[in-house]
Write a protein that binds this DNA or RNA. Structure first.
Lengths: 193, 193
DNA sequence: CTTATTTTAGAACAATCGTTATAAAATTCG
DNA sequence: CGAATTTTATAACGATTGTTCTAAAATAAG
């Protein structure tokens, strides 16, 4: 019927994602996105809608690529190792981050304007997903004795979620090895049986 | 010599702070600040410099009023109570926050453009101040036996700093009592002797 | 080939951005 | 009072914002 697209939707989303990730929503202009994606304003609007919609789709893409897949990989490990691998991974990502972009999801949590309920719900849901992953892993570890059972798994998961989030924020301003490793080292007292 | 100012510098800073706090740097326009402070563009530029300078002074004002004074109040308590009061306070502030503004310092950590080294250093230094407060308090508690000595005080302080930061971020997107209280509840396993 | 439909390219839009120029109003010192 | 000086108020500046319009290019179906 009509002329086919010259671009790959996923690649464009990746390019937009990278720019939003590095600069945040407000600081990224439509012209930045045009430059990064290589296509024109009309094409962007035609394919993705307005700026906010493009941001949302970029964030979804990031969550899928950068979080969901990682969780899936951890689920194959025994609970204790899953937790350790997970936090080791957070450490690596935070330290090998020359631009100090941090985690796009955590950035989004503060980047979102308070009145944008929809986007906030999206971020909240992903965080809830992380929390239930942690909770299930902890509960499994408590069942097999590899993780301390002094506290309810739900509370421990919330604690770990806070540590995870905090590290991602701290790393943006103070990307110091000692700081980040110290923050997770004391986790031993929480999870050791 | 000349006409005196019609405004109180501190009050203006408070008004600007409130706006920056609620909306962030980028999303706050000079016209917003004119509206909130009640004075004109020329007066603002004359008294405080450009927008970034005004933001920095607002943040300094916030740190002085909202953090330094609180730390000073905690220093008078015995170490264990100081920590508990501190985190209880964080919980209160996060839950009694109808606008979900969070902590302006934490917001600033992600709000700051990555190239603005100066402002980033400022934020980093305040965070370092928090860390040394926590570290000294923990060390004192370890000395008098009220706080567990299993981990070095420095690492525990880093852990607590991450929890603190994380809570402030989580509260903006998920201001749920159970989540925030659960995150601090598991701190017992870290600090209990 | 023609027609229909969609994507392109690039200019153009009004609105808003941070900032400054201009001149009137207000005060202290001589 | 008059001179000097600073703060006010208002309007305006060019630049950039997100978004859309116009027309040319390109393909699939008839």
């Amino acid at each position: 019927m009509a002329r086919p697209r010259e671009f790959d939707e996923q690649e464009v989303l990746n390019a937009a994602l990278e720019r939003f990730w590095a600069q945040g929503f407000d600081a990224t202009s439509m012209r930045d996105l045009i430059e990064s994606t290589g296509l024109t304003a009309a094409s962007l609007y035609n394919a993705f809608g307005d700026k906010r919609a493009l941001y949302r789709k970029s964030l979804d893409h990031y969550v899928q690529r950068g979080i969901r897949e990682r969780l899936a990989r951890c689920r194959d490990l025994p609970p204790r190792q899953a937790l350790e691998a997970f936090f080791q991974d957070v450490l690596c990502r935070s330290l090998e981050d020359p631009q100090h972009k941090g985690c796009m999801l955590v950035n989004a949590a503060l980047d979102v304007p308070p009145e944008d309920t929809e986007l906030r719900q999206t971020v909240a849901e992903v965080l809830r997903g992380l929390e239930t992953f942690l909770c299930q892993t902890i509960a499994a570890g408590q069942a097999d004795g590899s993780i301390r059972a002094g506290q309810p798994a739900a509370d421990m998961a919330r604690h770990l979620l806070a540590v995870l989030t905090g590290i991602r924020v701290l790393a943006r301003v103070r990307p110091e090895k000692a700081l980040l490793e110290g923050a997770v080292a004391s986790l031993q007292d929480v999870i050791n049986p």
